[in-house]
Simulated scan of single mutants.
Amino acid sequence: MCAREASARGLAVALLERAPSPGRKLCISGGGKANFTNRRLAAHHYACADPAFCEPALDAFPPQDMERLVHGWGLPVEERAHGQLFLTVPAKRLLDALVQDCRRQGCAIHCRTDVHDVAPLPGGAGFEVGTSQGLWRCRRLVLALGSPAWPQCGATGSGFRLAQALGHRLVEHAPALAPFRMAPGWLDDNLAGISLPVRIGLPQAGLSPALAADPVWQDDLLFTHDGIS
């Protein structure tokens, strides 16, 4: 998305992708139907140390903009519970549309190009990027490497390492959207795979302001073979 927007504004953009093709994680999002945004999305839905952290991004690119973009690509959309927007076709259609749009705007996508290191050039002239396919130089550099949370999709922690090499301070990270694993034999195995709507509440004592403002969630709970998700 960043490469598409920069290209659309007339910048010369090269996207370096370590995998054989870009966007593998997008292909499997939303159960393969691309849960690409949420009509009710707002800053208070983000639980973090600084509740205002995401406000500038949401102000600059609200969910309605993403919805218009997807409609512009001719993709069919449906709304599900809690304002979630999904495709009615495979998520790969969304990936293909994004890649085609990127290239149409002039972005060059280089796959199988693993970034090893980055360093600023003297005098603020830009950056030098060392990769498996040789050296690159650029005036501006964007690190968009995700997190190591899903290594099966090719995710690594290289983004943290590269950011540190440029002098950035890392906020300690922790798992999110993680399941609860229970002790063996805690429940009848026949329940695995069954889901049901639930309301879950947390005591407010000790919670961050973002969580304390909305301590009850209502959604689907899934019994798994080793706990709940």
Rank of each mutant, 00 (worst) to 15 (best):
W73M: 07
A81G: 05
D65Q: 11
N190L: 05
V77G: 02
V99R: 03
E55Y: 00
L166D: 08
V99E: 03
E128T: 14
Q100L: 12
P203F: 14
A174C: 06
A144R: 09
A155N: 04
P122N: 07
L85Q: 06
R80P: 13
H71S: 13
G72Q: 03
R68F: 01
A49W: 09
A165P: 07
Q164P: 01
R68S: 13
A163Q: 09
R139C: 11
R103M: 14
G74D: 09
D117A: 15
P151A: 07
L135Y: 08
E78S: 06
L207T: 05
P63F: 01
W73N: 05
Q64N: 08
A12P: 00
H116I: 12
A43L: 03
F86Y: 14
K25T: 02
A49L: 13
G227Q: 09
R40G: 04
A165Q: 15
Q84F: 01
L16M: 03
L166E: 04
V142K: 04
T131K: 06
L207N: 04
A43K: 12
G74Q: 07
R137S: 11
P63K: 02
C27F: 00
G83H: 04
S132D: 08
E67W: 01
P184Q: 11
C138K: 00
D65W: 03
A97G: 10
P51Q: 07
P22E: 05
D50Q: 11
R39F: 12
S147K: 07
H44D: 15
P148I: 14
A42Q: 14
I194W: 09
A6H: 10
A165G: 15
R112D: 15
K92F: 13
Q84T: 03
P175S: 07
L170E: 01
A210C: 10
C107F: 03
K92H: 14
T37S: 13
A60R: 12
F223C: 14
D114N: 10
C107E: 11
I28G: 05
L170R: 03
P197F: 12
T131I: 08
P175Q: 07
L121I: 05
T131H: 04
S29V: 12
L207H: 01
L26A: 15
V70G: 06
H82A: 13
L141V: 09
A213G: 14
G72Y: 07
D189F: 02
V89T: 15
I228W: 01
H173S: 15
S229Q: 07
F53Q: 10
L141R: 10
Q204V: 15
R112Q: 13
D101S: 15
R103T: 14
D114R: 05
T131N: 09
C138L: 05
G130V: 02
